[in-house]
Amino acid sequence: MNTELNRESLLKAYRMMRTIREFEERVHTDFATGEIPGFVHLYAGEEASATGVCMHLSGNDYIASTHRGHGHCIAKGVDPAGMMAEIWGKETGTCKGKGGSMHIADLSKGMLGANGIVGGGGPLICGTALAAKLRGDKTVGVCFFGDGASNQGTILEAMNLATVWNLPAIFVAENNGYAETTSPNYSVACENIADRAAAFGMPGVIVDGFDFFAVYEAAGEAVKRAREGGGPTLIEVKVSRYYGHFEGDQQKYRAEGEVQKLRNEKDCLMQFRRHVTADGDISAAELDAIDAEVLAMIDDSVVRAKADPKPGPEELLTDVYVSY
């Protein structure tokens, strides 16, 4: 199953997922103290999705993300310390404190931005893919979107366009079961989001989003097809989130014990650890060491983020245009 993943790649994938998890758990804790401003939407629980996809991407490939974007950013190589500072509204943040959690972006890493508008990324990824295709540079664009956005006209229009122009684009529907509070059982007219792929003339696949290897395999095929000029793919990742729509959400729409059960039985990190340590190639101690390093790194990023200065008043009026 994971034949192409060598030891180094496995450790890289684990570190990526653990970094996302630790980052999100830490933001969750700190948000509760009231120190973090604004709206924050956490990705904890969905780490295998961003990681399984982005392990196939290089810095020249593009991704577009969502309001729940921290995981995509980290998986695409955005500096977690810069992200943490951004979330704390500091001038050292990835976007100088001007964007915040919902707008973290790093174009130098091919990260086209988290997005405050549901479905905002689909058309943009058609654009990056069009540029790649016209240049012939074999790079791809990945649009991450949620089950909520799957009902948004922009996403449906983008999928159609991607096929019409045969673009190197991958549409990753992260179906975490809740668009805010609303289940896709109610809001999505067909059984699976992936079923819609047929209508747009592209392959549609469904994967278990708690299983890194399943995501990795499906994404690998889609990315390969796109790079080779085979056009777009829709991947539906069935997953769940561990926290509310945003921090502060009481989540009364969820079942009792739902999250705890997922954490106990399906957690992607737990599964990954069990899988890679089973054949003895990677030891639990190695993974524990990564956990400790990641924890220290996140701790450090928070200490720095707290200490860093806020943007100066002159920053209010800059960066609206390239030239004035």
């Binding site: 509070t181 609303t182 009364k252 729409y253 969820r254």
Partner: peptide, 20 residues
């Protein structure tokens, strides 16, 4: 509107939000 009640199709309470 979106989640004007909240919880449609979900396993928990209906009218979970009453709007964001």
């Amino acid at each position: 509107g979106e989640d004007n009640a909240g919880g449609e199709g979900s396993p928990g309470e209906m009218d979970a939000w009453g709007g964001v």
